[in-house]
Simulated assay, not measured.
Amino acid sequence: MTSSSHSSQSADSSKGDACMSLQNVTISYGKFEAVKNVFMDIPRGRVTAFIGPSGCGKSTVLRGLNRMNDLIPGCKLKGRVVFDGHDLYDPKVDPVEVRRRIGMVFQKPNPFPKSIYENIAFGARINGFKGDMDELVERSLRKAAVWDECKDKLRESGFALSGGQQQRLCIARAIATEPEVILMDEPCSALDPISTLKIEETMHELKRSYTIIIVTHNMQQAVRVADQTAFFNAEAVEGGTGKVGYLVEFNDTERIFNAPGQQATQDYVSGRFG
């Protein structure tokens, strides 16, 4: 399969207003291409899920959307990631500002070693927030559906919360810097089923205000939360070791799971490999 045929699957999948556009994106670690030739228009105000087997590059692409990969020595991105009319990898673009406008929630909850209140206030303060901090803290915790569990212990450590509550605290922390996009890298993989359900309900609420992009290994989760789904796969590198990831297909979630255009997608979503 050539890279051009890989990318053709995503070309007609953008519906409505694109929030971010990936234009022939290839991401390498040193000389190793982790994922190549990705074309994708991610719609605004929707939940987009990245699915695929381990090692297909979906988390690498996700981190490329807010330049988190810049923090990995030797990691390079070729192509364009366009957000708000700007190429995020243009030398004039400030990666810190990129990460403020495109927030990130990681796989394992990672509260700051501070109070619940300061977990929310800290980033806002650094970003020059001059408004009513109490109101911002409450609003962020409410949007992340964790206010009721936190409101009486705002001065306690973030680590005093359960794992699921900590993850929603981390979502609230991302919200507090007033981003436009929230990236979530397997946000429920370390959580129990009840906490997972609460995070998923939170995502449904958040997409009213934000564009959400999630990497998940849980295909049922993709069906439950995502409006669009991108299926990534990997193939062996010719004459070398390792595999390179590529985008197979990107479409409405219902299409991906019920009537995919590619046999590889059908095989994956039906559990034949992965």
Rank of each mutant, 00 (worst) to 15 (best):
I256K: 08
V225D: 05
N258T: 14
E205R: 14
G239Q: 03
G240C: 06
G239V: 03
H204A: 14
T241W: 00
E200Y: 03
I213Y: 08
R255K: 15
M203G: 00
E238F: 10
S195L: 11
P187S: 07
V244T: 15
E186L: 11
G240T: 12
N258H: 13
F232I: 07
I212C: 10
N258Q: 14
V237I: 15
P187F: 08
E254A: 09
F231V: 15
S195N: 11
A190I: 08
D227A: 05
E235F: 09
A259N: 14
Q221S: 03
D192H: 10
I214K: 04
L247M: 12
A236H: 10
G261C: 00
S209I: 01
P187H: 06
S209P: 01
F232W: 08
A226I: 12
R224S: 14
A190D: 09
A236G: 06
T202Y: 07
T211F: 07
E200F: 05
G261H: 02
A222V: 06
V248A: 15
F232R: 06
M219K: 06
K243E: 12
V248N: 10
D227W: 10
N218M: 02
L197C: 01
I194W: 01
P260F: 00
H204I: 07
A234Y: 12
G239I: 09
Y246S: 10
F250I: 00
A190C: 10
V237G: 01
K207G: 11
V223K: 15
R224I: 12
N233S: 13
A222C: 01
A236T: 09
G239K: 09
K198W: 07
Q228Y: 15
